[in-house]
Design a protein around this nucleic acid. Structure first.
Lengths: 199, 199
DNA sequence: GTCTATAATTCGATAGAC
DNA sequence: GTCTATCGAATTATAGAC
């Protein structure tokens, strides 16, 4: 059944996000999914196959939203750096915020996909490579005259802000004891302003 | 013997950094350390005890260097934001660069300690809390007039740059195919400049 | 497609000799 | 302090009934 497969993907995504690839167990996943070990073998194959399936489903939606927003901005004859930054930040931030608990999971998974050195995460980059190239090109248009290296560094810095924000949400909130809810527009705005000056 | 204990700490640090807490195995550690399982039990206790020992040894040196450099800057009557940023960035960056392979390990461990949601990493924050408070206070002096929230956000952004830089070194280098060596002064300078504008 | 049962490893921890 | 041997539990993966 289709539903079992999707259910497994959802639960597996959560477990991989929270516990990492090594820390997640198939038995923990099938227990939460209310099914059995064999169902994973049937639908996906090995543990690593399951992980790659999760990764595939995860990366596409956000990246395509980012690229779509960027495309719209590129139509404008007067391309603003600020709008390029918004195109990059808004989709993942809105996703993380609007989906509630599910958004937290996706945030953790995103962070892990960018910071885990484990070999299983090596394939992650191919899902993001095109997006990165497009945004760097947009930076070159919005803010010409810098070196290739400059653009790469600044792209990495821009990425750092959101990766750490999403990954460290819980630690930060627990520490400063702010409300459990957060304002996505304020966060996006702070990131954009910080980056805009930095560029 | 003292040497066995230190050796175990070194190897364990590497394994935890690369594989995470769940992914690291005591047998993998003792194999690389050329000893046996019982030696871990004797010197540290459980796997988690070993991890906490690694964490303890890891956090202190860098933090104390940062605080010491900050202390020096605070003597100056004309406190420059740029110098506060330097006090924060230089110690971990120099460490990561000067120690070669060992520096890469420490970088990964640092990244993991800041981004892992696993409960074993919860105790990490107490090692860094004081350092964070001191630097935020320094920011207030160097750049007065902002709200508490402003300082916290900017501290987080500042931290993000170095956490992601150190954690993602390998992915980034592999991608841009630059030299395997990197210039710590250039990296520090780029981070400082980016932050200085952002503040 | 779903499930139970189980094979084959591997892991953390401990007992006990030296 | 060091090491071997081993226990009990947990893991991935698979075989085979329904």
């Amino acid at each position: 059944m289709k539903k079992t497969r999707d259910q497994l993907l959802d639960i597996a995504e959560r477990h991989f996000a929270i516990y990492g690839f090594a820390g997640a167990t198939l038995r923990g996943i099938i227990k939460d999914a209310g099914t059995n070990v064999a169902s994973i073998a049937y639908h996906f194959g090995t543990k690593e196959d399951l992980f790659q399936a999760v990764l595939e489903r995860f990366a596409k939606p956000v990246v395509s939203q980012q690229l779509s927003k960027l495309e719209t901005e590129l139509q404008s004859k007067n391309l603003k750096l600020r709008n390029v930054l918004l195109a990059f930040y808004e989709p993942p931030m809105k996703m993380a915020h609007s989906l509630g608990k599910k958004g937290e999971i996706l945030s953790l998974f995103l962070g892990r996909s960018q910071t885990e050195p484990e070999p299983v995460f090596n394939e992650v980059d191919k899902h993001y490579a095109d997006c990165r190239d497009q945004f760097i090109k947009a930076f070159e248009r919005a803010l010409p005259g810098l070196t290739k290296e400059d653009y790469h560094w600044r792209f990495e810095f821009m990425l750092s802000l959101i990766v750490c924000f999403l990954t460290r949400q819980k630690q930060i909130r627990g520490r400063y004891e702010t409300r459990t809810d957060w304002n996505p527009d304020e966060a996006i705005n702070r990131m954009i302003s910080f980056c805009e000056s930095g560029f």
